[in-house]
Simulated assay, not measured.
Amino acid sequence: MKHLMTQHPQAKLLVVDDNPTNLMLLVEVLKTAGFCNVTALSHPADAIEFVKRSHVDVVLLDQNMPDRTGLELYEQLCFVLAQNPIGLLVTALASDELKAKSEALGMAGFIGKPFDIYYLVNQIDKSLNG
């Protein structure tokens, strides 16, 4: 069995997903992998307010949310922060077109649901390593 442990336990992660079960699962996986600073929000507007007052190293965004898509939220976060944060789109809508759009926006990764937890942690670490 592979070892599931992040290289960056102090990284500040923000997870945004409107589905409470998916949000809880993702947060538990991240904490199990050793991430100590994980904030979970279920509404995109809360994420915008959060990044205005708190430093975030990585944002993990669901694509399908009722108020706006993960891509739209990422664009807004980039505008608010005046830079592109490390962004990973975590979505059940895994398509080449969506992946290309996320890359065009400067997102660091695209993770399809259901996700492989080792791949998820590896993508976060790889993004943080630059």
Results as ranks from 00 to 15, higher is better:
Lys2Pro: 15
Lys2Asp: 14
His3Leu: 14
Leu4Thr: 03
Thr6Ser: 04
Gln10Arg: 14
Lys12Thr: 14
Lys12Tyr: 07
Leu13Ala: 07
Leu14His: 11
Val15Phe: 01
Asp17Leu: 03
Asp18Gly: 06
Asn19Ser: 07
Asn19Val: 10
Pro20Val: 11
Pro20His: 01
Thr21Gly: 09
Thr21Asn: 09
Leu25Glu: 10
Leu26Glu: 13
Val27Leu: 04
Glu28Ala: 09
Val29Lys: 00
Leu30Asn: 04
Leu30Ala: 04
Lys31Thr: 09
Lys31Val: 10
Ala33Gly: 03
Phe35Tyr: 09
Cys36Trp: 11
Thr39Asp: 12
Thr39Lys: 10
Pro44Arg: 00
Pro44Gln: 03
Ala45Pro: 04
Ala45Ser: 13
Ile48Arg: 11
Ile48Tyr: 10
Val51Ala: 12
Lys52Gly: 09
His55Phe: 13
Val56Asp: 07
Asp57Val: 04
Val59Ser: 11
Leu60Glu: 14
Leu60Arg: 02
Leu61Val: 14
Asp62Phe: 00
Asp62His: 02
Asp62Gly: 00
Met65Gln: 01
Asp67Pro: 03
Arg68Pro: 05
Thr69Trp: 01
Gly70Phe: 03
Leu71Trp: 01
Leu73Met: 03
Tyr74Gly: 05
Leu77Phe: 06
Gln83Phe: 08
Gln83Gly: 07
Asn84Glu: 13
Gly87Ile: 14
Gly87Trp: 03
Leu89Pro: 06
Leu89Gly: 03
Val90Arg: 05
Val90Ile: 15
Thr91Tyr: 00
Ala92Asn: 02
Ala92Cys: 02
Ala92Glu: 07
Leu93Cys: 10
Ser95Thr: 15
Leu98Val: 08
Lys99Glu: 11
Lys99Ser: 07
Leu105Lys: 01
Leu105Arg: 02
Gly106Arg: 02
Gly109Thr: 13
Phe110Lys: 04
Phe110Arg: 03
Ile111Asp: 03
Tyr119Gly: 05
Leu120His: 09
Asn122Ile: 11
Asn122Gln: 12
Lys126Arg: 15
Lys126Val: 13
